[in-house]
Design a protein around this nucleic acid. Structure first.
Lengths: 243, 243
DNA sequence: GGGAGAATTGAGAGTCATCTCAATATTGAG
DNA sequence: CTCAATATTGAGATGACTCTCAATTCTCCC
């Protein structure tokens, strides 16, 4: 039996409070993906199907919600990255990290869309400390250490983060050519720009893109907040092992 | 022949109108650079030092202003590009176009900031048709035609436009390393990623960056709307009479 | 200068947003 | 089942924003 009770009760002892907060977070992610900077508290509470007043039990104000969303979303991406940081060959590590981010964006387009929009929601004065900046710096640094003779200069950061954000945008908006070939070619272009031999760049990127889905699935099963996984309606959260 | 009707040229009291509209446009550029999507009509009219009501003599509504700003700002960048489109060697043309855009962004940081913010002000559904998309496509296309064996695929567009937008953001926010070296290295990285020989990439990019200031100055003197030039307070223009 | 028409003003109507709070409903341990 | 703690509700208070319009000021042609 175990018909889910009409009153949704996940488990005894779990305060309702926990669940409502997460529902608000998921609703906020959807709303920001759709509305961007212009999102309103009412947008969020309507999606979460709670009253306007309830919102203020969980967040001090609208700003606090935005901050919480930034933490959540950037968290899922950085966790995904940290997941495979122990790769040995720096070039392969870079390729794998990038391929994983693409995979993550394709699996959770709302999260990617929110990340991209948040990246632009800051004022010019604070662009330097934008939430995504550390992620880009880490990536560029990790891409280069120990393998290429090039230092992770500002130009390299621009090359890597700019290209990846642009490709993420394409993937998140589900354009027709956001295919595995597209991802692989993006990575190969980056590797070549960073100084890798063209042939090796092509091989490495193909390998990384091919390996990404399995790594990513394992990561999601293990580490991703199940409530956030709801934010990807197109992805069955507990599908069969195979695809 | 010609206009038979009432006095062929409308000249009664129509002088001021032109000027006010341009002042509103300049104020809007400043305001959007500072406030982004959240800009209000009052922000703009306060900056332009006109009353709220005056605004509606010139723009049907707030949306119309945004559209007009997009036209103006994207216009100045595409004009800059078209300026040097006749270069012979595609790689050098690409390097020069890029260097010119960097120069333009450094000379008119407000325009660059507005362009970058507008790029993110659209909804995800319309990102594909965002105002900056054609500019990026043109650039990627122009970069490759006739020289590289690579076709201007989606990956190439992502590489070129993403990197340039990121570098423009750095230049617009006046970060300490937005120097000539930075610009030159960005271009070299791109050229190498596109398939050019590393040494030639370095040489070409240095040449292009060195040549950019003169070309740009000539372009501004010749073609740029003088009112828009006001948007760059650091520019020593405005030689007097406000006709 | 005189005056017709262009240009501007700013108060105000209407809308919609954020956030509060007293009242009400729900939850779950004993 | 009971009831105190916990969570939710939704109608306002408040303020900011967009857009209108009758009244006023300004321009500049003659």
């Amino acid at each position: 039996m175990s018909t889910p009770a009409p009153t949704p009760t996940p488990r005894r002892g779990t305060r309702k409070k926990e669940r409502t907060r997460r529902e608000l977070l998921v609703a906020a992610i959807d709303a920001i993906a759709a509305e961007g900077e212009a999102v309103t508290v009412l947008d969020v509470t309507r999606r979460a199907e709670v009253s306007n007043g309830t919102f203020y039990n969980y967040f001090a104000d609208r700003e606090a919600l935005i901050d919480a969303v930034i933490d959540e979303v950037v968290g899922t991406f950085t966790t995904t990255m940290a997941e495979i940081v122990e790769h040995e060959d720096p070039a392969l590590r870079f390729a794998t990290i990038t391929a994983l981010l693409f995979e993550h964006a394709a699996a959770f387009p709302q999260l990617a869309t929110v990340m991209l929009r948040l990246d632009a929601m800051r004022r010019p004065e604070t662009w330097g400390e934008a939430p995504l900046r550390p992620l880009g710096d880490d990536l560029a640094q990790g891409a280069l250490t120990g393998r290429f003779d090039r230092e992770p200069s500002a130009a390299v950061v621009d090359l890597v983060t700019g290209t990846m954000l642009r490709a993420l945008r394409r993937i998140a908006s589900d354009e027709h050519d956001a295919t595995a070939e597209h991802r692989s070619e993006v990575i190969a272009l980056l590797l070549r720009g960073l100084g890798l031999d063209p042939d090796e760049a092509e091989t490495l990127s193909a390998v990384a893109v091919a390996a990404a889905p399995d790594i990513h699935r394992a990561h999601v099963d293990r580490a991703l907040d199940p409530v956030l996984a709801q934010a990807a309606p197109s992805t069955p959260s507990a599908p069969g092992a195979d695809r």
